[in-house]
Each structure stands twice: as C-alpha cells, then as structure tokens.
Design a protein around this nucleic acid. Structure first.
Lengths: 336, 336
DNA sequence: CTGAAAGCGCTAACAT
DNA sequence: ATGTTAGCGCTTTCAG
C-alpha cells in the first residue's frame, strides 16, 4: 500500500498522489477526489521514513532525562511533549541515568535517527568523554539542557539558581539564631553538587565554620531520608536545621525526627527541595525550594523551538531565580 | 558523510562499507581496518532512516500513556524504556490524555513511522471511534495495553484486579462493623470506573444499600482530596470509611479530616490507591491498594517483546491480583 | 572477499 | 494541472 499502488488504482501519477497527500500544489478537485477516494479505500498510510529520507527532515526531537520518575522531570517532560506534539514533533524519550555508555547510546541513536534537536532534563555531562559527546551532538542539532549544566558551551542551558536559594535558607536561619545545620543529599550529580555548594556557601557567608554543618549522603527517597535522619540522631549529631536535596528525603527525615520526639519546627526546622505535592501531604507541611521547573521547561522548549527554526539564536545560557517556599516545617524568617 | 564518501575515501565499494558497518559478512581484516579508519576520521554516523527504508524495520516502539506524570505510569515507563533500550529499541513517548483526535495523532504517527509496536499505559479507548483506531493499529503492529481495558479484542491486555481489591476493602470494613462509606474519585476513565464499580460491588455484597455509600467526583491531587473531604464534612455526610481512587486524593482528605477534628483511623478509616511513596509520608501513613504496576509493566513489556518477535502469540488478556496494603490510616482487618 | 546494481517509498525539480 | 525522473542513504541479491 504505497504511493505507486494508489497512483495505479487512481489512474494518475505518483506525483499527483504525493500532491494530494501533502496539499503541496494545485490539483484539480476532480482528480483530488478520485485520489482521496482510493486513499480511503486502501487505508493508505504514508511512510514517514521514506518521506524523511527524501526531505532530509524528521519531525523528531529527543527528550533525554536523568529519570522520568522524578516528579519535577515528569512534569517537564509532560509539558515538553504536549507542546512539541502540538507543533507536530514526536518525542523520543530516554533515561540517561547511568554511565557514559548509556548516554552515548541515546545521543548516537538520536544522531542516527536524524533528530531535529534534543531537550535534556537533569542529564549530567561532566567528564571529558561526556562533554565531547555533547559537542558531537551539538554539531548536528540544537541541544538544550534544562536543570543541569555543563562546561561545554556549545549547548543551550537553562537553569534556576537553586544554590542561591539553599544558601539563602541557611543564612536566613542563621540570622534567626540557628547554629547547627545538617544536610541530606542522595546523589552526586552536578546539580546535586551545586545545591550542596549552596548549603556550604550559606554556612560560610553566615560566618559559620564547616563544623556547624554536617552533609551526609543517603539513599534515595523516603527511606533514605528516614534512615539518614535516624543516623544523625543515633550518632548524637546536634542540629536545629535540616536541609535536604529532595522532598522525599525531607519527608522521611520528618518522620524519623518526630518519632524520636523532636518537635518540628520548634526543635528543628526542616526543608525539602523541589516543592512537590508531597510537601502538602506531610505533617507538618514541608517548607521547600521551588526550582520553578515549569518555568525552566517552558523556557527550554521555547529555546529549542527557536533554535530548530534557526530563526534567531537565543542566549546560550539562561538562569532564573529559584523560590523559597516556607510552610509549617520551619519557623518563618525573612529572605533578603 | 554518507556511505559513498566513505567508500570513495577508503577506495572500496559501498557494499563493503555497509558490510563493515553491519558486520554482516566476511571482510578481509585489511580492508576492514582501512574502512574503519575512514569511518573514524569522518565521524561517520549511519542514517537510521535510510536503513529503515531499506530493511523495512525501525527499532521503534511507541509508549502511549494517559499521563506520564502519574507516579505509577512514570515507574512503568521507566521500566519499559530501560528494558527496551537494552534490546536496542527506542521509545516514542506520547501523552494521550485527551480526545479521539489526540489519540488519532499518536497512533497515526506511530503507523507512519512504522513503529514495531505500541505499549499503552492507562490510555483508554472506549467509544466506537477509538476502538476502530485501536483495531487499525493492531492490524499493523502488536498493541499491548497495560492497566486499562477495551472491548477491542485485537490487542493484548494486562491489568490487575483493582476492583476486586477495592471491593474486598469495603467488605472487610463492613465485617468490622462499618456501615457508612464514602468514595472520592478524580476521573471517569474506564479504569476509574472499574474501581468505582468495585466500591459499589463491595457495598452490595456486604448487604449495604447505595445509601450507605456516597461516591463523589472531585478535582485531581491533594487539593481535590482536601476540598472533597471538606465538602463531605460540610454537607454533614456521615461516614466512617473513606476510599479514594488515588493516593494524593487520600492525602488531601486525610488533612481535611484531621483538621476537622476527626481521628484517623479511630473515627474514620482512609484508603488511598496505588500504594505510592506518598503513603509513607502522610501522618498517619496511608493504607492503599497496590495495583502492582511494576508487575504489570514487566508483563506488558514481555508480552510486547514476544509479540514483536512473533515467536509465539502470548495470551490476549492477562490479569493479576491487586494487593491490599494496610497501614496506619485504617484499623486492621482480615481480607478473605 | 568484493563490487555492481536494483530497490525501499517518497519528494521535488523539470517537463509537458 | 499532471507526468517523468532523479535522487535521499542504505541493504541485499547476484556476479565475479
């Protein structure tokens, strides 16, 4: 059921068939009707692959993300997918959580499939090998990284200043009299490191030494937060403020703290990160930092779109401020 | 940078280049080396679209889902994507949340792109038009529906008996003496309706009339659950057991109940649905029904794989039992 | 072991 | 307005 069979059955040339399919040129309404009838009858479906080969254009964009299960990324992917679909782009999705080999697989795949562009959510490209891969990709199609950064300057980047927000929280709490901080994080990705940096910078800028802040790497999710907080408690570490790199971590920590008799926020203030719906569900509700993923996703998609239309090159790097959301797990303070 | 340029630079024919690229046939190690060197130098990337046209095979599978933001679907997508990627399949993802037109867009797209198969998560195809679409798709590639059902019997289906679990909860609670039930749901999709049916069947089979169970449609998420429960309370509806179609709904309801002075589980037992991580985060922790999405996803992927390899046709329809998970938001009872 | 040549299904000049 | 034809980049007989 290709264009030839249609042409034959309709008694016209393949060019004409192609024309009616694509509305590309004038076709007399008589032949048009004739062809369309055959199209219907045969349940003809054009071959996108043949078309792509002929036109050298796929309407395909890659969505590479660190983990589509992360609610923030899921939200971004959803938005990106729906927006791009509305413009007739299809999304090839991949989770590049792992090592270089995995990233290589996805990037090469997109290159081979001649994708029109890539949108990355939280995918980290740190070392030399990864950056080279990124450059290779950027040479052939626009690459937009959302919520993660890289030294490779060939790619577009949009991030929010989460580290500033974290630092601001520490400073705000310090001004309120807090002197002993703890930080729970679950990954060592660049963006995770950036948040951690914010924590440490906050301490420094508050005139507090490293001894005032314990940063502990824990397992992912509620369980990681729970056991992490238990560990802190069991080891007798004293802290009146607990920050985390993830809401689920904070939710777990919250449970552990309360089970151990701590009052939140009176004894210890707790902060999550990402401002997910989870924050509303805990008791007390969770203060968090809103990294404004929707904004980032929006900006990322727009950037990719204009880059693909190669109309005007947008900025290489964009940053928007993150927002601190104070709820019941912390005592209110002013943010400078 | 196509196969011709490579052939020329290496002083061989394109057939030979094709052979070394695909390791398809014997090539003397001398020429092989020569060709591979050129491949490297030119940073040659094969064209998947040309290859697909020639071989009539894309390694592409569609992942159509109701909403990739739903944690359960996100988990499934992740699993499916990683598993398929390991076998060299790329995933075209789409959210077919909406009307027929949207589903049509995705299905036709997959057909045009000559996808090798489709995996659907929670996507509903109810009415005549949608079912015809499904049939059209199934005629050309294997279609596997996970966590949703349809009357169209041309597609593979794997679901869990969530309705049975819901009914069992109602019956279990009824045996414990509960007489007044409420049910909060946020959608009218087939699978949502099935759950609701379970609720109603549970009442019936407990010898309770419809007057003993109020089913209310509410907005999505925590907020929907919160306002829904408030509505029930404000309207003076008495109930000692509250079931929901979603954990987030239950989380919201939980807050509202507790704020209004109800003790959970003493005054009212609350059940979520999906057994997400959220259940651990609430206070008290949330009882829920585990629809075993991971199992379903696993089964769905396996089904698709074997259907694509057309080795042996697996069963058309598979069902696995769902599990009731009792936590602190309900008083323990025995499940028959 | 290697090369020549015919397609895969479609688009896009270029004719008519 | 419609038809002819030459690719698009690759795979795959079929010869040699």
């Amino acid at each position: 059921m290709n264009i030839y069979e249609v042409a034959e059955r309709a008694g016209v040339s393949i060019a004409t068939v192609s024309r009616v399919i694509n509305r590309s040129a004038k076709v007399s309404s008589a032949t048009r009707a004739k062809v369309e009838k055959v199209l219907e009858e045969m349940e003809y479906t054009p071959s996108a692959v043949a078309r792509s080969l002929a036109t050298n254009a796929t309407r395909l964009v890659g969505i590479l993300c660190a983990d589509n299960r992360d609610p923030a990324f899921a939200e971004s992917i959803f938005y990106a997918e729906q927006t791009l679909a509305a413009e007739g782009y299809d999304c090839l999705m991949g989770n590049a959580t792992g090592d270089l080999k995995q990233k290589d697989y996805y990037i090469k795949g997109l290159l081979e499939r001649k994708a029109d562009g890539v949108l990355m959510f939280g995918a980290s490209f740190e070392d030399e090998g990864e950056q080279n891969l990124l450059r290779l990709a950027a040479k052939r199609m626009p690459v937009v990284m959302v919520a993660s950064s890289t030294k490779a300057k060939e790619v577009y980047q949009v991030t929010s200043k989460e580290d500033m927000a974290v630092a601001s929280i520490v400073k705000g709490l310090a001004l309120s009299g807090h002197k002993h901080f703890a930080y729970l994080y679950d990954a060592t990705s660049p963006s995770a490191r950036i948040k951690l940096n914010g924590f440490e910078r906050g301490l420094e800028e508050s005139g507090l030494g490293g001894a005032n802040g314990a940063a502990v790497r824990v397992a992912k999710g509620f369980h990681g937060g729970f056991t992490g907080a238990r560990w802190l408690i069991d080891h007798g570490l004293f802290f009146t403020a607990l920050l985390t790199s993830e809401d689920a971590l904070a939710a777990g920590a919250l449970k552990a703290l309360i089970q151990s008799g701590r009052r939140v926020p009176d004894d210890v203030c707790v902060f999550g990160h990402n401002n997910s719906e989870l924050c509303l569900c805990t008791e007390p509700s969770l203060s968090s930092v809103d990294n404004r993923m929707e904004e980032l996703a929006r900006l990322g998609v727009r950037t990719l779109q204009s880059a693909m239309n190669s109309s005007k090159k947008p900025l290489q790097v964009a940053q928007i401020p993150a927002k601190i959301v104070q709820r019941d797990s912390s005592v209110p303070f002013d943010v400078e």
